[in-house]
Design a protein around this nucleic acid. Structure first.
Lengths: 279, 279
DNA sequence: CGGGACGTTGACTCAAATCAATAACCGTGG
DNA sequence: CCACGGTTATTGATTTGAGTCAACGTCCCG
């Protein structure tokens, strides 16, 4: 049956097919003007961009529009229905990033990436217009390099905004902080700076707000990470002592505590006990 | 002075003014190609989009690039430095949405809006390229209505993603849920459906993940809102009984509890007491 | 040197996570 | 049509992580 994932067919389109509900699997093709009307962008020069055909795809309730990690080839515009966009952690925890409905874009965060950083499934029977990223960038490329740059930048901004969810997700405060540090480290590296040692440009209060915790909690979390030997901290100077350990730790969920982490915590407890005895 | 932090290397380009600290206010003007190189989009046709001049703006540490609520006229590309993007609640609580650095866009969420939904301040001395939204949409308009639609859609997706922060912000679970319901109500209205009564398409678990709480907490929060007379709930059928009350409630912060809310909570406590006596 | 913002740490409390049990709902197939 | 298993929702009991309040040390800039 057509049950499985999605075999979705031929990009074959014929300009002209009607939008009826003929067959669920065969994508119907509509004119671009349909899409533009949906997006309320049909003002201005209507006949200009003309009748570029845009396939319509139907998705059943519970079915995935695209999977996390799948190659990103298209973006989608919701014509009818609702979707949830989410990311799945290693331990299976599903973090919902957004609910999207009519006239919203889907999958745009993948424009700047190879693969989709998130998945989308329909919450009810739905239909979307499908636009190939290649086409989008081509059209732009011919007209304006700036426009293409903007698309890419916007896409990455969207991706980064999605990372906010990882930070504020329902996990322990130390985990949030470690995720923050790992991200920051990557970014420093991308800018040609040291990924191991850097200067925080923001206050504890700013970090706290970003992570969704109290600023005292950020302080405490820094202390804990330091105690566990993952980082060294002095005010805004941070050194990542154990990058791998930190990454492993940052993957923890509230319930599931990583093995390496647990042992590190026990070791530090030992240290504490010894220190206490010395006194 | 320039002593402490970092007096960043004058990657002095010329093309008129030197990068020195001449005048902070007088924007320097660079060629578009500079911007494209920064964004790594200079491949392809280099000479094509040519030498459209792009102003460069310098921002001192602590200075605002743009304010929340200010008219949105430009987007910005960070050349050097770091910014924090944030929204300020009625009670003054500052919710940080993101930290952005070199080669990131700033202010793109305002492309689809009249005003900036968030503000941005520099965390260190910084410089940005300034691109007028008008120019961006004009350039596109000439070439492709689709491209313009994509810009708008991407912008609104970014805005919506920012709202996720409101949901997961450090506030009481009932407040998060009420914010969620208010947003949903708006969206339903925008799609021509009833804003007062609607069917939730997502499970409690999905909502919980989106709000950053346990799914039991979502259930309890629904019950509380119902007890306070703000909503009526039956499984996935929701009716907003007191839209204004709900909106007022959704503006609460963890510390600051709205007066109307407090009285509603007391009234419901009374009801409970009476019920207990009857038994 | 002094004042104000920033950072750390401790003690206490409470909101929410967790664990657990039950009830309502839904699609499926007899 | 109803019986059934599984998912989903509600509610209660218990525990705990983190918010809050408070005190103190530190850094920085005027």
């Amino acid at each position: 049956m057509n049950t499985s994932t999605q075999q979705w067919p031929p990009r074959s389109f014929r300009l002209g097919t009607v939008a009826g509900l003929a067959s669920t699997d065969a994508p119907q093709v509509n004119a671009l003007s349909e899409l533009l009307r949906l997006m309320r962008s049909d003002d201005g020069v209507p006949g200009k961009a003309g009748d570029l055909p845009v396939p319509l795809r139907r998705v059943h309730a519970g079915e995935a529009l695209f999977h996390e990690g799948a190659r990103a080839e298209s973006i989608y515009f919701v014509r009818t229905g609702t979707f949830k966009v989410f990311r799945t952690a290693d331990d299976g925890y599903e973090q919902v990033l957004s609910f999207v409905g009519r006239a919203d874009v889907l999958g745009f965060d993948a424009v700047c990436a190879e693969v989709h950083p998130s998945g989308a499934v329909a919450l009810e029977d739905s239909s979307v217009y499908v636009v190939l990223v290649r086409d989008l960038l081509l059209i732009d490329g011919r007209a304006s390099a700036l426009s293409r740059a903007v698309h890419l930048a916007a896409s990455s901004a969207l991706t980064r905004q999605g990372e906010l969810a990882d930070m504020m997700a329902a996990v322990a405060a130390e985990v949030r902080l470690s995720r923050f540090l790992v991200r920051l480290s990557h970014r420093m590296a991308a800018c040609g700076q040291s990924a191991r040692r850097f200067h925080l440009r923001m206050s504890r209060r700013d970090i706290a707000s970003y992570l969704g915790v109290a600023h005292e909690t950020v302080s405490r979390s820094f202390s804990s990470l330091a105690l566990w030997g993952l980082v060294r901290v002095n005010n805004r100077e941070v050194e990542l002592l154990d990058m791998e350990g930190l990454k492993a730790f940052s993957r923890n969920t509230r319930k599931q505590v990583d093995e390496a982490t647990r042992s590190a915590m026990e070791r530090s407890a030992d240290v504490l006990r010894e220190t206490a005895q010395a006194a």
